[in-house]
C-alpha cells in the first residue's frame, strides 16, 4: 500500500482538504489545515483554464496566477513544510504536458508530495503519466463520475493508486444544496470493486453533508467551501472549519 492509501484510517471516514496553491499564504494555510486534522491534503496547482472548476476555484486560481504563482513555486512551498498529512497535487494536464511527465513526477517527489489528481486526464490518456509517477514511487489518483458506466468504473478502479476520487455530481466543483439520491448506491458499488479507498467530492460544503456521508465512503473531500472560507475569513477561520468537519466524521 502507499502512503496515500494508508492515510485513510480504518473505522473512520477520512477528511480530505483542498488548498489552492498560491492563493494567499499557502504555507500558513497548509500548516493550519494539517494541524486541524486533515487526513489528506490536496494542493491545487493554479491553471488558467480550469474546465472542471466552478466560479470559486476559478477565481482562486486567477488570484494565484495574478500574484505570480507557478507550479514549481507552489510545490516548493509545500516542500519546505513538515506536514503530518500526505499531500497530493490537483491540477490540469496542460502545465504537466508542458513540463514533461517525468520532470513533473520528479518535482512532486522532490517536494515530498505523494501523487497527483488530474481531472482532465481520463483513463485512455493516463498511462504515460501514471508510469512516470510510479517510477518515482508516486500515485495517480483517477476520477469516476456519476455518468461512468459500472464496467468502466471497475476498469478505472483497477488502475487506481492511492485512492479513487468519486465525483458526486454531474457538474463543476462548488457547493450544492443537496447531493444526488443515488450517491450512496454508487459509492457502495465503487467500494465493492476498488482495491484502494474511495473518496467522494464536488459539492460537499457543510458539516451536515459530511456527516450524512460518514461511513458511506472512505473519505470525503471539501474544496470550494474551504478555499472560500480561507479567502474571505482567513487562516484561523479555515482551521476552525476543518475542525468542524473533522468533528462529525
Amino acid at each position: 500500500m502507499s502512503r496515500l492509501s494508508d492515510a485513510f484510517p480504518k473505522g473512520r471516514t477520512a477528511l480530505v482538504c483542498y488548498v489552492m496553491g498560491g492563493d494567499g499564504d499557502t504555507a500558513a494555510l497548509l500548516q493550519a489545515v494539517d494541524e486541524a486534522g486533515a487526513d489528506v491534503i490536496e494542493l491545487g496547482l493554479p491553471f488558467s483554464d480550469p474546465i472542471a472548476d466552478g466560479p470559486v476555484l476559478q477565481a482562486a486560481a486567477t488570484r494565484a496566477l495574478f500574484s505570480g504563482a507557478t507550479v514549481r513555486g507552489v510545490l516548493a512551498t509545500a516542500g519546505k513544510l513538515r506536514l503530518r498529512a500526505p499531500v497530493v497535487a490537483m491540477g490540469y494536464m496542460n502545465p504537466v504536458e508542458r513540463m514533461g511527465a517525468a520532470a513533473f513526477a520528479k518535482c512532486l517527489r522532490d517536494s515530498g508530495l505523494c501523487g497527483a489528481i488530474i481531472p482532465d486526464l481520463p483513463m485512455e490518456e493516463a498511462q504515460p503519466l501514471r508510469d512516470a509517477l510510479s517510477a518515482q514511487g508516486l500515485d495517480l489518483v483517477p476520477l469516476v463520475a456519476p455518468t461512468t458506466p459500472a464496467e468502466r468504473a471497475t476498469a478505472i478502479a483497477r488502475t487506481a493508486r492511492g485512492f479513487v476520487y468519486y465525483v458526486s455530481v454531474t457538474g463543476v466543483t462548488g457547493a450544492r444544496a443537496s447531493l444526488p439520491e443515488d450517491l450512496e448506491k454508487r459509492l457502495a458499488e465503487l467500494r465493492a470493486v476498488s482495491p484502494v479507498p474511495v473518496a467522494v467530492g464536488f459539492g460537499i460544503s457543510r458539516p451536515e453533508q459530511a456527516a450524512a456521508l460518514k461511513g458511506k465512503a472512505d473519505g470525503i473531500v471539501v474544496g470550494t467551501a474551504l478555499v472560500k472560507t480561507a479567502h474571505e475569513s482567513g487562516v484561523k477561520a479555515a482551521a476552525d472549519f476543518v475542525r468542524s468537519l473533522r468533528a462529525v466524521l
Binding site: 481531472p119 486526464l121 481520463p122 485512455e124 463520475a145 461512468t148
Partner: peptide, 19 residues
C-alpha cells in the same frame, strides 16, 4: 482513440467521456 500521430485524443473530465 482520435489520435492524429501524437496529437488529438480526449483531455476532458471523466463525466464527459461516456457522452
Amino acid at each position: 482513440r482520435g489520435r492524429f500521430g501524437e496529437y488529438g485524443g480526449r483531455f476532458v473530465p471523466e463525466t464527459l467521456i461516456p457522452a
